[in-house]
Simulated scan of single mutants.
Amino acid sequence: MPEISVLIPVYNRAAYVTSAVRSVLDQRGAPDFEVLIVDDGSTDDSLARVAALGDSRIRVLEAKANGGIASARNRGIAAARGAYTAFLDSDDVARPERLAAQHAFLNARPDHAGVGAWIGWIDDDGKRLSRIKRKPRTYRMIAAERLFRSGIENSTAMARTEVLRAYPHDESLVVGSDYDLWARIARDHPVASLPHLLVDRRAHAEQATTENVARDRYFRCRIFAWQLDALGIHYTDADLNGHYRLRRLKKAGDRPDEAYLDWAEAWLARLRAANREYRLYPEPEFSGLLALFWAAACWYAEPQAKGMARLARNPLTRALPRGAFQGWAHRAPLVSRAAARLGR
């Protein structure tokens, strides 16, 4: 039996799936593994290209109709033979040391349910780009961030198969089911991310559309909602949309006005007070994170001078030095790697 099942859902990815599968077959130093291709009703020649690789480590689960990414991942997890399941998207590529590094980490830390990694970018032709997404290293920071974003990049993740079976993907989430998955797991179990580039994400035209952004907001707000329910927070649709906006200020080129700052100030104070009562998110990491979001809202405000004046006099700002330090320490390459080697 393989030690690791590498789960690759596939839906009409003929142009990229061969590179994804080869990147797994070429892993170095990893224990025995299988590559589990979970077809989601492809209508192109994706599966023919996989079959042409002719490797006995490849196993294919076929579907007659497209059921969505969450359904495909659930089918794959149910069929996995390995004690560990690693995810990889069908247009991404794993770096050669990925499986060995993550398997060693989880073997050494039986309390951890899963581990991710940092992710780089490649272009349509496979050329590496300079962009890097650095995720927080430790479970406390990942757990603190889960109300706003996923601390685990799913295409880099490896987890214990028994844990994934206990936390199935929510198939009603058309997008964001991976964020929901890791929010639920991080609520109950330690998870981490290795401060190393172990996967490259392919940038191509099909990934970014206006429709996808709109859907992302809708489904992420659903994930925010169940976490806010657990915190005992009463909220409106406007609150959910405002919360979503907080995490996208820089990316969206957003310039908050005074009305939004009024809302954000009150909202973040409510989150901090609720967490002091319910203790669902680790402190002081959670308060530091709230301070960072408040500082971002003030920095991008229009006019900026008024925003910065509000930042200076708000009690949330007291946690800003810690928030800035913890954000930097978890994502600065040399600091993160040194801390990882020391086991911190």
Rank of each mutant, 00 (worst) to 15 (best):
G288Q: 06
E258Q: 15
A225S: 04
A269M: 15
A101K: 15
A94M: 12
R270C: 06
L173R: 07
V35E: 11
I142L: 10
R201M: 12
D262C: 02
S23W: 05
D44Q: 01
L261H: 00
D229R: 10
V93C: 10
P321V: 03
G76I: 04
W121Y: 15
M1S: 05
D44G: 03
D55E: 13
E34S: 14
L320V: 09
L47H: 10
A15K: 12
L311D: 09
A266K: 04
V93Q: 06
L240D: 07
V175N: 11
L261W: 08
V17F: 04
V191P: 07
E162K: 13
A72M: 11
R81N: 02
R140K: 13
F325W: 14
L61D: 03
R187A: 14
I37C: 01
L173M: 07
E206L: 14
E62C: 05
R98W: 00
D180Y: 11
L289D: 10
R75T: 06
L197G: 10
S56Y: 08
I122Y: 01
A205C: 12
A339S: 14
Y167C: 02
A15Q: 11
V6H: 03
L289Q: 07
L246F: 00
R341A: 15
R322Y: 13
S23Y: 03
Q326H: 10
L292G: 02
H330D: 15
R341K: 15
H243V: 03
R255S: 05
W118I: 05
K135E: 15
D125Q: 13
H169Q: 02
Y139R: 14
T236Y: 01
A166S: 02
F224K: 00
A78T: 15
R215H: 12
A269Y: 08
A338K: 11
C221V: 03
M1L: 04
R73C: 04
S155W: 04
D91N: 12
A63C: 00
R222G: 01
D180P: 10
D237H: 14
D188Q: 07
V191Y: 12
A264P: 03
Q227A: 05
G343W: 12
G114C: 02
A332H: 15
C221W: 00
G76M: 09
F148E: 01
R313Y: 02
E171Q: 03
P190Y: 00
E3Y: 02
A94N: 09
A266G: 11
Y11K: 14
S155K: 08
M1E: 09
R184L: 13
N275H: 12
R217V: 09
Q207S: 02
C298R: 08
L320I: 09
I69W: 00
Y139N: 14
A79H: 08
A230P: 02
P96A: 12
K127T: 07
D40W: 01
I8R: 06
